[in-house]
Nucleic acid binder design. Sequence first.
DNA 1: GCCGTTTTCGGCCCGACTGTTTTCAGTCG
Length: 602
Amino acid sequence: MRSTNLVVLACMTNKEVAVMLREVAAAFVIKNENRFRIIAYERAADSIEHQTQSVEELWKEGKIKEIPGIGPNIAQHLGELFTKGKVAHFENEKKGLPKAMFSLLNLPGFGAKKAFKLTRELNIKDSDDPFKKLKEAAQANKIASIEGFGEKSEQDILTSLESFQKKEAKLSRMLLPIAYDIATRVINYLKKSNSVIEIYPLGSLRRMVATVGDIDIAISSNQAEKVIEYFLKFPEVGKIIDKGKETTSVVLKNGVQVDIMVQPEIAFGALLQHFTGSKHHNIALREYALKKDLSLSEHGIKDLKRAKEQKSKEFSNEEVFYNFLGLDWIPPELREDTGEIEAAQKHNLPNLVELSDIKGDLHLHSNYDLKPSHDLGHNSFLEILNKATELKYEYIAFSEHNPKQSGHNISDIIDIIKRRKQTIDKINYSLKSDRVHFFNMMETDILPNGYLALPKQTFEYIDATIISIHSSFDQSSSDMTKRILKALSYSKVKIFGHPTGRLIERREGVNANWFEIFNFCKAKNIALEINANPNRLDLPDMLVREAVKNGNKFVIDTDAHQINEMNLMRFGVSVARRGWLEKNDILNTLPYSEFKKWLLNL
DNA sequence: GCCGTTTTCGGCCCGACTGTTTTCAGTCG
């Protein structure tokens, strides 16, 4: 089928839209606009940046106002942006302000006012390289003499330029499992100290976000200095950056920064809550508390009706902190201001799935060589089975990539799949009956035209197939949707593998009409995969949430190409938890007999 | 400019830190 689109305009990324809104907010700051209008634009930018779906796609589907912080005005402006490529109102607001000012906003420590003042005082023109000009001015000591600046701020600007350039060069955030492993080593070490009562990671790591910036750790202890002394003896510590009575920062030998905060037991709850975030959750929680005349901070809760009262009420753990506000304790993975506060108030929070609920892994690549279209695995069927036993699974599936099409004709491919079945069957007969059960599956490519890369005649030699996209990621949303729906309509298709095809920080997911796809999967009893590979974590959490509201079912798989990667299941589970999934939403929590009924359509 | 368990009008999160200042402005998480 030929595309009817003669010109396919590239979609604007969410990041680009967010930058545009932040620039308007910065323009408002300079023009002394109403500060709540400024906040509104910044919130809208934040919110757009946190969407996993393309905002432009949401707009096309008429759903842009469903994004929190987007009201009638901004929605209208963005509509203009997506149709005309620019927004007259935005251009108007920025008119008369130097373009260079907006570039400088990217520097750490720079807000609208500092950026504007420096571009003006240093006479940096729009055509200049503003970073270079700024550096030259700082080096020539031209900044210290400007009113409101001094020697120190001049030095800080140089440092900030340096770190900005370094950051540009490398990945600024770690993939979740890397941060998780490092934090686990630190925590296990600290737990050996008698002075430590409780210990938790903080921030995006505790919330199990796909990428993590710094590793921050909170400790409850009544002997802060002892804990810090003990921590500094951790064998992996490379350099001590900062050391205080209750906090310390170090750089480990692997270059990762770790910050520690120690608080006495009695005040630990509020600290943990505050630094776990997210920012959006905390803002929403404080707004909620204000209506009860309560003011929240990392120190505790203040009653505003008793203004004389200086000290905050303290909380030893998070549960009493949330309960004091009339809320159930909210699991960290849900703290993103997407309805969790309301649910906690109504005692309506989901009973989230746990790693221990998982009874099998359906997406495993063995080293059985069927000349695949993509990577072969490293381990044999038996090695994978042994690993599955170690993980106490009831069942698994072998799901190699389909044989590549070039160099093979249809009968070659049928032959390969047939022989693979014979090999798998042989193992089945040779093993004792009280071991891990296994299925004979494939991971089949969805070709650009929506056909599968596996001929239908092979279907009698497999139990079921995962289908996934491994090429032509940049089709238009309508073409991509048609492609996926066509592929999903084959018999034997039971799992839609890593649906968006995203690679974290490397490749955006494909554009498609997810609601149409989710509906189709639901009707055909096809599971959406949550792929636990750290580079994928796909379906992304926000789409998981949409799909579960729609009534879809899921499987969580590791997509392991070697047996060690089968340990990554917990990160798939964390995506499921961030998507509000309960055990019942996930098919590979079912016992073998029931799972088999679903997979084989019995 | 957004938004709704006091509200469709009248509110809008909190504190720390830093550097420049004599009481604060800007930025950050």
